[in-house]
Amino acid sequence: MAETPESSERSEQAGKTVARRPGGRAARTKRADEGAPPQVEPARPAEPPAVAAQGRLAVRKTYKLYVGGAFPRSESGRSYPVTDPQGGLLANAALASRKDARDAVVAARRAFGGWSGRTAYNRGQVLYRVAEMLEGRLGQFADEVAAADAVPRERAEALVAAAIDRWVWYAGWTDKIASVAGGANPVAGPYFNLSTPEPTGVVAVFAPPEAPLLGLVSVLAPVIATGNTAVVVASERAPLPAVTLAEVLATSDLPGGVVNLLTGRLAELAPPLAAHADVNALDLTGAGALAAELEEAAAGTLKRVLRPAEGRTDWTAEPGTERLTAFLETKTVWHPIGV
């Protein structure tokens, strides 16, 4: 998908209420046809942009989708304003369409053979590299998490640190889960019989809305650690750390398409993913009120479904292996023994 210059994107947005703020950043009202009530007041700019002491104007980032290893805008040309809890504008994020979701599934399917075919050791190396890249960007993530959740900087740093440690924890699982979840079966006959776990395939992950980085890492890392590929719908409210995570993934030797990240409306993106015949499994952790409807849609092709947990999840607690095994299939191979 080709990049469009900012200017042309703006011209495509003609007719919308546009509030400019210093630095040329604009916050638009939500469009009535997006299903949300039209916003009368334009979003306020959050903090005044940090103009460097030298009087230099900061270069801002465009938050885009991450599909097939590239960073396209939504094919629909849409975006939506992302705000902090007080309503201050943080940035515009891409408002992905159903078509973007389908493209993401195609990319994830294409990447599945290669990624699931890597050795478990190699997947562990790549995932550990992701943690290294996360560590290098700790400050940036802490800024984004602090802004998204309006938490003190110190708390945000702790959450980012927990997310990095969580990633390392799952990186270490890649070459151990088969020993734990599989094994030899002592059948009553002269047969070699071995059960091994294999990745389910393409998993659509609805990230938890409340924990934009730690929650996202906690649901995404286990999916890809075992060799699945993922289409992730980021927290609708706070998608910016997710996009930055995608930038980390893109620079960590993770093959394109293994993780595909969509930002936008859950209600628009989740139903087509839940009904998509080339999606093998759903993680409904962040599906909220849509969970039952999505599970029902998943029944059409018998997708594996991880239901949302009952009650609130403590994302800082050490997880068990449930999120790893939820997206594994057990394959059992028999062979006669004889001379």
Binding site: N185, G189, Y191, N193, S195, K331, V333, W334, H335
Partner: peptide, 15 residues
């Protein structure tokens, strides 16, 4: 889920 190599339709409670 089940691959039988050089055999077929074998079942066992442990498998």
């Amino acid at each position: 889920g089940v691959i039988w190599s050089n055999t077929f339709n074998k079942f066992d409670p442990t498998s």
